[in-house]
Design a protein around this nucleic acid. Sequence first.
DNA 1: TATTCAATGGGGAAAAATCCCCATTTTCCG
DNA 2: CGGAAAATGGGGATTTTTCCCCATTGAATA
Lengths: 221, 221
Amino acid sequence: MPRQQTKTSIAIVDDHVLITQMLATTITNFGDCQVVLQATNGKDLQRQINPSQLPDLVILDVNMPVMDGYETAKWLTATYPSIRILVLTMYDSELAMLRLLLLGVRGFLKKDIDPATLKDAIVTTMETGFYYSERQLVNLLQSKGNNIQLVNNVFLSTKELQLLTLACSDRPYKVIAQEMGISFKTLDHYRQALFDKLNVKSRVGLAIYALENGVVRKKTE
Amino acid sequence: MPRQQTKTSIAIVDDHVLITQMLATTITNFGDCQVVLQATNGKDLQRQINPSQLPDLVILDVNMPVMDGYETAKWLTATYPSIRILVLTMYDSELAMLRLLLLGVRGFLKKDIDPATLKDAIVTTMETGFYYSERQLVNLLQSKGNNIQLVNNVFLSTKELQLLTLACSDRPYKVIAQEMGISFKTLDHYRQALFDKLNVKSRVGLAIYALENGVVRKKTE
DNA sequence: TATTCAATGGGGAAAAATCCCCATTTTCCG
DNA sequence: CGGAAAATGGGGATTTTTCCCCATTGAATA
């Protein structure tokens, strides 16, 4: 049902104020949508959201200070499961998409799209519940027989994620192990696990992965 | 002279189509500006630009495929020195800003600004020739007595830049030295120079620097 | 011309990272 | 309960990185 009496209400969560405002303008110009909330991060969304007047859809940036897209998606899904979530991001790694999908995200949009695609994504998400700008992830999930195995392989444990974050520094593993409260040798195992799961061969590879996939927030972003 | 008969004509160069379009909408709504050109990278700008109808100002993204902000700024300054350049970026390192300043860029805008700030930046750049959203760089340039020394220290040689790029990989220095056609020991000198200039202590630090400052283009950006 | 300086390459050693093995404890599940 | 799997820690070797020294060459410069 494309046309409705009531407009689709949309919330935008992105720390780039300029992008948020421009998104709002673009969406408003669609005519059948209205932007009812603009937040700069997840915490800001929690503060502003009105349970008696929930948005139909949240457009969510992944990389944000204070409370990022992952935490926000998790909280939204748990608190207001009826709200559709569309992630607007520059990253498109399978790991990141899988994590977000399991957190309840309904679709992904890269930032190099045009307004028409944005509208299509919003409409499609509202009508069918899901939107993917690329088929790869769908194929991935459908082709592999044992999804659980896949998820176990692709997902990172808390310690692994912590190491991945701390590895993005000038500090040697010896120091990082102390910070994590584990021995250097235990850290070695997590390191090897990360190499295997992320398909890299060195600590530099870890750092590149973490930065490219938004695991570690860049200072100026 | 804020108000003129003819509107300020603006070109936007950014590979994120959505951002470009929204920027264009926002700027058009200012009333006294008009967007006369939208390009997705430097090469695209070269193809589209009309010498008989040059824009007054170019809003330029740094991170772009094909021809990035550095190359584009260099070409613009050499070819059409009258055009003001405003860089829209997420990076704000002194090195990056210095490089861009010496390439003729007139001002910097981080992407977390609001439309009012954007307008202020455009107006200020057109009126005074320069715009800085932060004073730090101006202070830097004014305080240091010997700018040439500073520039020599801050700028990277071709080989250093090449190493910085190649260091963002899983390959050991031994292999990188072969790729660069120099000995491992010569590479060692460039590495040490990079450590000193960029104030890092390890190869991971180099990779982080390169990614955070757009020296190496991220796959999905 | 003499000197300085950058680029080139090297020896050697210490530190760090990587990769094999292994054992113990805990946790989880059939 | 009993076994599988994960988390923890280690020994030891190899490779890579990092940091000291140093020498030679050629270009730039006082």
